[in-house]
């Protein structure tokens, strides 16, 4: 395997030994950093609302955790089952979602609410159980690390208790973010990620996912249809900062 990599890279090095002036653009790579322009916004939530609407994301604001839990309860009651008769929910096991106390909020509905395994390492028994729950769930609930207003993008990373599949396999995805996690645009997002990487080189983790809207396709005569393979709907709940 190593020999093969060496031979491959030797070919690349030889190929690059010939300099070329063809394809030189007007700007050099070294000059790029100062040219990157971050958008500014006095009202990122309004920007987010506008872009979320364009992507068919159901955006709702919640004044406090209890209000957010009530919104999720309502979504759970209103959403129709797709793959299993019994409607079930699966959620991340993380600080923000724990704060919502969804177990109490959903208690009277009788709907099962599963939690992704938190204890590491995840053994085979826990993994198999999680996969069964995941397949049967109609709603997957996650938080997110960031939400980018300009593109209505959620940024999720895999950590203990936070498997990305919760945002993918169930029919409907509900994401909860704090207002303070809303960034204006992609340039700011990558600046934050770079900052994080300076503190921890593995800050991105092995799996990071950007989600902008529910699953969609236009492959049949360009007609946009939601719910191609992933969630057919995406609900985004922004928890207002206490000061607001």
């Amino acid at each position: 395997m190593t020999a093969n990599r060496e031979a491959f890279m030797a070919r690349v090095r030889t190929a690059l030994s010939a300099p070329t002036s063809h394809g030189r653009g007007a700007i050099a790579y070294a000059e790029l950093a100062p040219l990157a322009v971050a958008k500014r916004s006095d009202a990122p939530l309004e920007l987010l609302a506008e872009n979320a609407a364009a992507l068919n994301i159901q955006l709702q604001l919640a004044a406090d955790p209890a209000a957010a839990a009530a919104l999720i309860r309502r979504i759970a009651v209103e959403t129709e089952a797709e793959w299993a008769q019994q409607k079930a929910l699966v959620r991340w096991d993380d600080a923000l979602l724990n704060e919502l106390d969804l177990e109490t909020a959903l208690a009277d509905t009788g709907l099962p609410l599963y939690r992704a395994p938190l204890a590491a390492p995840v053994d085979t028994v826990a993994r198999d159980r999680f996969h069964r729950q995941l397949r049967s769930a109609v709603i997957g609930i996650t938080s997110a690390d960031y939400c980018v207003a300009d593109t209505a993008t959620l940024v999720l990373r895999n950590r203990p208790g936070q498997p990305g599949a919760v945002s993918l396999v169930p029919s409907v995805h509900v994401a909860v973010v704090r207002e303070s996690q809303v960034l204006v645009d992609f340039v700011s997002l990558y600046a934050e990620l770079a900052q994080e990487r300076r503190r921890d080189r593995e800050a991105l983790t092995g799996r990071m996912t950007f989600i902008s809207g529910p699953s969609k396709t236009g492959d049949i005569e360009l007609v946009i249809v939601h719910g191609a393979h992933g969630p057919r709907a995406l609900h985004l709940i922004v928890l207002r900062d206490p000061s607001a």
Partner: peptide, 12 residues
């Protein structure tokens, strides 16, 4: 995607 699932991961 930067590798297989880590042992704390329930998916991947």
């Amino acid at each position: 995607i930067g590798g297989p699932r880590a042992d704390f991961q329930a998916d991947g």
